[in-house]
């Protein structure tokens, strides 16, 4: 009986998965459609397999191969992962665990920075970075992350840290740990789920971010994957949908692998009793 129920559950899961994945399989199918077919045939099956969409897409941009865009994206995404993980973790520790003057006010400010819609910030930010002399460099995409400007991740980590029993800190304190050593020996090891989550999102969101990269990247060879993908469709003229879909499929691969690699670390890691000892 339990076995049957297990199978039913797997089947239900597979059914849901099929629906969830259908649109993506459509992208895969359409990435093999010919230019004369892709706009008029909405079915998931290409009439004739056009594999050349992949090779055409890879070398579509004159003088720059798509590999270059992948490299640019990977570099910026990885830098963001590292910067966010470090800066948001230390900030979150301050908010979650330490008592200092003005903490609640700062916390409210931190949340407030999440609330303003981004489109009115683009121009002021650009003006600011221009004053810093950062234009024409990748600094606007990376340096702010080192200064914990991504409040989303700070708040995420705060919520996770507050799930760590305080007795552990107290035990460390009794053992003579100051806040720095408590951070290093207690909080850091127990923050793995939050760090992994931050890493996954930092990578994926940077990989998919269009607008900031568009504004700050100065030339075609410095473009990243999401910016490059939009070069295929000039709504006023030349549109190459097949190659664009082909490159979209390829662009999913690095993030998918990154996700698979990192989610493995999301394991039941905490056994607090051992630490309580």
């Amino acid at each position: 009986m339990a076995r049957v129920r297990g199978w039913v559950r797997v089947l239900a899961l597979l059914g849901v998965l099929a629906i969830v994945l259908y649109p993506l399989i459509w992208v895969l199918g359409s990435s093999l459609k010919s230019p004369t077919e892709v706009s008029s045939n909405l079915s998931i099956w290409p009439q004739e397999l056009t594999w050349s969409n992949y090779s055409d897409g890879w070398s579509y941009i004159p003088g720059v191969s798509f590999g270059r865009f992948f490299m640019n994206s990977i570099v910026i995404s990885l830098a963001t992962v590292v910067a966010n993980a470090i800066s948001c973790l230390v900030t979150a520790y301050a908010f979650a665990r330490l008592r200092f003057w003005g903490r609640k006010g700062y916390f409210a400010l931190m949340i407030a920075t999440l609330l303003l819609p981004g489109h009115v910030l683009i121009v002021p930010q650009y003006v600011l970075f221009s004053e810093f002399g950062w234009i024409d460099t990748p600094l606007p995409l990376i340096l702010p992350k080192l200064l914990a400007t991504e409040a989303f991740f700070i708040f995420l980590m705060v919520q996770f840290m507050r799930g760590i029993p305080r007795e552990l800190d107290d035990a460390a304190k009794i053992d003579g740990c100051d806040p720095y050593r408590t951070f290093w020996h207690v909080i850091l090891p127990l923050s793995r789920p939050a760090l992994i989550t931050t890493a996954i999102f930092s990578f994926i969101w940077t990989w998919n971010d269009f607008f900031t990269q568009l504004v700050y990247l100065p030339s075609v060879p410095s473009y990243t994957v999401p910016v490059a993908l939009r070069l295929f469709i000039d709504s006023s003229g030349q549109t190459s949908i097949g190659p664009m879909l082909a490159m979209s499929v390829l662009s999913l691969l690095p993030v998918f692998l990154f996700f698979l690699g990192f989610q493995r670390f999301l394991v039941q890691g905490i056994n607090t009793s051992g630490l309580k000892g």
Partner: peptide, 18 residues
């Protein structure tokens, strides 16, 4: 993990033109 990945796949597409 693969199942998680596949459920995550739609989000990986983000705001892509596709």
């Amino acid at each position: 993990g693969l199942f998680r990945g596949m459920f995550y796949l739609p989000s990986l597409l983000g705001g892509s033109v596709a």
